[in-house]
Design a protein around this nucleic acid. Structure first.
Lengths: 217, 217
DNA sequence: CGGAGACTTGAGGGCGTTCAAAAGACGTGG
DNA sequence: CCACGTCTTTTGAACGCCCTCAAGTCTCCG
């Protein structure tokens, strides 16, 4: 939009060239081990992040010591935005060798200010996070244990995008699922068993699930 | 940033003038009756909205007929963003005479593209919504009924911003609170009674609450 | 082969839901 | 101003789901 302008002002011309910089060019790639922190809850928000490969969990430890997982991030997701100075959540790698692109916040914000494409990318990404959270809330606040687990499996499969095959390799433990769905580990296990016995899913292994009936039943 | 440029190109100059338009100048003010819809879940996302006065609820009807409230919007909040063509939620006025500024989506997006201030405003607003939802999720998925109601009251008081006085006039019914917290109406009532008996709150009337002890206890 | 972590299953109790009923609050019209 | 109907709020009793505690099995990896 701006770049199509035939402006002769050198300062502006230089600016448009700076704008041409892809957001990826200002990023630093980092690799994380399993359970290694990308950032912690009391840390200052100096970076934005994008998952390149692997997965992360966004969580918080409640005053009673229990862990609450607010979101799971998969490749393509942006995270690390905050309206306050500190994140209120910690983010941890779930799988070994999770790769993350890190963007210096000030530079990225300046880029978002000058490049509408970047601003739009951020906007779409945050809106997607909102919709994910709203969906998650619906699941957590109104569904039974089995329904929650099934909704999680269906939602997760849709996100990893294996639309054709229903075989799903879960990168996360029952503990993670429990903390994400607001259930106990035992209840999650019982829900898996229940869904298997009712023919909604089949288990080739604890982490290898096939969704047979995605709908109700 | 762009506007400080001394560019002589007329097209660009005209553009900068367009950029000067405040986002509020492209809005239409509308007033809604109680329970009137701002938009419904299957409606096309042609507008963005900002609450001017009153309050709205963002909700969805589950397949079993139960209603789930995902968020309450108060003056200053932006809403209506979606990454898809349709909203997945309906939004309704809670109080009589709720006033809302409506922005034509395409115009607003173009404005966000050209004016970093607007883009930043939208970004901050969506990030605030994310943080609200994450907080809400924490409440819904790990707290007991009384804790949820108390957390709701404290959170709500902070949002309406009556920091000095603890007297709080609730614009919403027990039914709304129940659907927001994932509880039944009866349980919400019992939680109010419980909190009153334990001295955490006092009730001058069903809708008039004073928070005595915001912390635990 | 041994150990640690992940997963599964069982029994009992607490908390929230459902069903039922009544009291309170509020606006409307006489 | 009061009577009336409707919506909201409150309380009670019984049931059911999920949590907790406990024990055992499976799986992976050194």
């Amino acid at each position: 939009m701006f770049r199509s302008s035939g402006c002769a002002d050198p300062e502006f011309a230089q600016h448009t060239i700076r704008n041409r910089k892809d957001i990826h060019s200002i990023s630093i790639l980092r690799t994380f081990q399993r359970d290694q922190h990308i950032f912690e809850c009391d840390q200052h928000c100096d970076w934005w992040y994008r998952i390149v490969s692997g997965a992360t969990r966004k969580y918080r430890i409640r005053s009673d010591g229990r862990r609450q997982i607010a979101d799971i991030h998969l490749p393509g997701d942006f995270l690390g935005f905050s309206s306050k100075a500190n994140h209120g959540f910690s983010v941890q790698a779930i799988v070994e060798g999770t790769t993350i692109a890190c963007y210096p916040r000030k530079t990225a914000e300046a880029l978002a200010d000058s490049d509408p494409t970047v601003a739009r990318l951020i906007r779409v990404s945050t809106v997607a996070a909102i919709e994910r959270l709203e969906q998650q809330m619906l699941v957590v606040s109104t569904m039974s244990a089995s329904e929650r687990v099934k909704a999680f499996l269906v939602h997760f499969r849709n996100r990893v995008g294996q639309a054709g095959e229903d075989g799903l390799a879960l990168p996360i433990t029952r503990y993670d699922i429990a903390d994400l769905l607001g259930l106990s580990t035992e209840t999650v296990c019982r829900a898996f068993t229940d869904l298997r016995e009712r023919g909604a899913i089949s288990l080739e292994g604890p982490r290898q699930v096939t969704i047979i009936r995605p709908g109700n039943g």
